[in-house]
Structure formats: structure tokens, C-alpha cells
Design a protein around this nucleic acid. Sequence first.
DNA 1: CGTGTAATTGACATCACTCAACCCTAGTGG
DNA 2: CCACTAGGGTTGAGTGATGTCAATTACACG
Lengths: 248, 248
Amino acid sequence: MDRIEPALQWNDSPAACLHGLGVSACADCRVRQISVCAALDPHELTEIDSLSHPTAFPAKSTLFTQEDPASAVFNITEGMVRLYKLLPDGRRQIVGFALAGDFLGLALLDRYGVSADAITDTKVCRFSRSAFTAFLDKKPHLLRRLHEFASHELSLAQDQMVLLGRRTADERIAAFLMSLKERFARIGHTSITLPLPMSRQDIADFLGLTIETVSRTFSKLAKSGVIVVVPDGVRLTNLAQIKALATR
Amino acid sequence: MDRIEPALQWNDSPAACLHGLGVSACADCRVRQISVCAALDPHELTEIDSLSHPTAFPAKSTLFTQEDPASAVFNITEGMVRLYKLLPDGRRQIVGFALAGDFLGLALLDRYGVSADAITDTKVCRFSRSAFTAFLDKKPHLLRRLHEFASHELSLAQDQMVLLGRRTADERIAAFLMSLKERFARIGHTSITLPLPMSRQDIADFLGLTIETVSRTFSKLAKSGVIVVVPDGVRLTNLAQIKALATR
DNA sequence: CGTGTAATTGACATCACTCAACCCTAGTGG
DNA sequence: CCACTAGGGTTGAGTGATGTCAATTACACG
């Protein structure tokens, strides 16, 4: 499932860099077609390849925090990342889960504004922000693609506002499962068994609930036969029902 | 305060168009410096001027709804607009209030995805989406500015997720007042008396609360001397306290 | 001076939260 | 091989912040 060219060895240490090993990552990048890079022609691909620093982050490591100066931007090629904001007293709101094909640092601002941790082992193409923006200045079609990505993010954020402001716990869980399922489908994972690599606490902090409410709601849905809770995931046994809950 | 050139007569009917009356709106546009148009040089300004359809929407009229094909984009020059999403059962989440200088239709998608109503009498520069995107294709620096606007919107949306997911009613109201005050300051209104042209129901639907909770919270803050509720607004008599509540 | 709409206030209900106990699994070390 | 531990997850009992329903007030408008 997670095919990696034998020559393409990813280092386990955080921020390990493969650039300069004679490995052409872009040429056989599995997420190229769905990432921002789809806007680039073969020649441009070799150009950006030379700017790219393939990097691996182990599970639970930090990509950046909300106060960090945004020195780099990231194209996720594998894994899952949580993006979140912390309040001074420790309350946390996860604003999104980023998957393969997603781009971090869209805003191109001086500070990230959100923190990002790898949930699973994660691989990214890292670019220095200055190099990336310089490249961007020469490639309006890439900027256009970046804008489309940002617009899509904004649209997801608006959906999440509806969820957080106006939906019940049941509906939040159902909508979460549906949207995650759709996102996994987009990157080629179409099983009705939905992997949930994040913790219950992560789900709670994404949905504006407590861990206990998340757990109880899973149990309730399981008892009514809509889902089956399995290790590190759920089977969506009654999709119609979940969809009904999610869009109600 | 709301200076209008005498020659620049705005029609009261919805979607009234002034283009072709020999009125050059851009030349003396009050929001040019803070809107997306700040990216344009004088020559480009005359170009976009010829694409612009100055339009007035009376209070309570609809600019567009979430299902509408996005045939136009809008630059708000005056007034206030609510942007919201409706669930099938009528629950509503306001995802933002748009003020002078804000741009509607940033995503450049086929559907708006959100609905927009004028709260006060509102004036906009309307552009057909096809004409605007065609213009955009020739002006990468305008696209860059549009992207900055979208990124800023995304950042606001993330802040709103924190508010909706993790803050108490008191904190939501305080944060709402602070952020609205800052936005009004940006467009030149710096008084400690903050106009609230939207209804309590609008505020409730923005903050994920009920109208009663909004009303009670205003009363509570007023009783503790932090604000004074006045017709169509509030006086922020203890800014430090409000800021403390808002950022806690 | 009535009428209608928005806002406020009060009384009560409820959904989700808090606090606490318990369970399950994986890892560790005897 | 099994006892022990630690961390994450589940479940239960009780509480509380916010929602619901209803009555009252304030204000704008004819």
C-alpha cells in the first residue's frame, strides 16, 4: 500500500534531508497529481525538485508551532498531521488534519499562526519559504493553484464553523467520519474501514467536545449498529445512516 | 462621516447599476487603499474601472445565496454584509461579517457556498466573475493580493473555530467585540462606541449561542461595568477587561 | 395611542462536561 | 511465562452552562 522506491530511503530522525542524494523525488511522487505540484509541467517539476528538501517526521514530532517564524512551507507526501491552536490556559482547538497531498504554509505569512504535529510517521517536501515564494513569483499558474487550495481550506473551515456552532455531538461525529472518509477516498483509500490514527483527545479537540463525549458517542453509534469500533479505526457499516446524521 | 461625491448618486433598488453614467468610481474610491485594488497601479485602475458595476443593496436585501452559481464577485465599498450557511432544518451559522474593503467571492468557484445579505444599506463594486478572472489572468500581482485576502480570511476562520469550539459565552462575546472594534478601526472608525448594526440573532448565530444567552451576557457585562449597551451598539468602557476576557 | 418587532428577563430543562472508577492493551522486567 | 505498570479508552454518577419556553419590556412606526 505504501510503496516506496528501494533507493528512496527516508531517515527516521526529524527533519532528515535527502536532497543531494541523486534521488529525484518529484518524478515518481505519489501525490503529485493531487498536490499543488499538479500545476507544474515536466520542466518546472525539475526546477521545483531542486528546491525541495524531502524530510521525514516521526509520529508525535513537531513540524512547527504557532509562534515560529514561517521559514518553510511543506507539501505532505505521506502520513497525517494535526494543525491546532492553543489558548494560554491550555485549551486546544484542532483546526484541521492534513493528509498526503495537503500543503502547509499556504498563507505565506511571516508566522505560521497554527502549530503542526505529525500524528503518524510523516513525509513531506519542505521548501524554504523565500525560495518557494521566489519560484511562485515566476509561476502565476502555481499561485493560482495555491489560491485554489487556500479557497478550499477556507470552505472546509466554514463547514467546520457550522459544525462547531450549530451541530449536536452525534452530528459532529457523523460529519467528521464522512468528511474523513471522503478525504481518504481522494488519496486512494476507499475501504469502509476508516483508519483513525489520531487519539480520542484529538478528535474531541477537533469537534469541540470532550474525550468522554466522543467515546460515548462512538459507543452509542456502535450499539445502534451504524459503526463498528475497531483498533485504530471504525467500520462504517451503515453509510446511509451516517450520511443522514452528518447532513441533517 | 460617510462622504459621498454629490455626482455619485447610488440607486436604492437592489442591484442598481451606475456604470456608464460617466462616473469614475475607482478614482475617488474611499476603500481603494485597503481593498484588493490597492495592488493596482493608476493605469490598471482605469482598466478595472471599466469592468466594475457599482451597485447598491438596501438593508436586508440578498446579494447571493449559497446555491447560486457564482456569476459575480464583489468589492464592498460601504455597509455591512452577513455571510452564512443554512442547514436543511433552518439552523444558521454566520461565518463572517463583511465590511467596507472586504471582497466577496474570493474562492472564484462556480458556487458561492455561502449566502450573503446586506445588514445595512450597502454599496459594492460588482464584477462579472468571468471578466474578473480574465483580468486576473493578466495581473499576477492582483492574484497575489487576492491570495493574501483569502489567507487572512482563513486565519480569521481558524480563530473563529477556536472561539466556537473552546470558549465560554462570556469569552465569545468579548472576543467578538474586540475583533469587530479592530476591524472598524482599520476602516477609520476608532470610537470606543462600537456600532452593532446586526441583530442579536445575527450575533448569536455568529457565536454559536442563542439570542437569550447573547442578551444575558451583554446584561452581565453591562452590570459589571465593562460595557454600556446603547441603541445599535455598545460603549467599551473597560477595554483592558474585555481584552483579558477575549484572549484568556 | 395602538401595533408589531426586537430585546430582555425569568423559570426550568437538558446536553454535554466534570470527576472518578474501571478496563484494555502493549510493553517491561522478573 | 506471567505480574506489573502506564497510557489510552470506556463507562457511570452527578453538575452546570447554556438552551428552551414563556412572559414582559422597549422602541419604532403608522
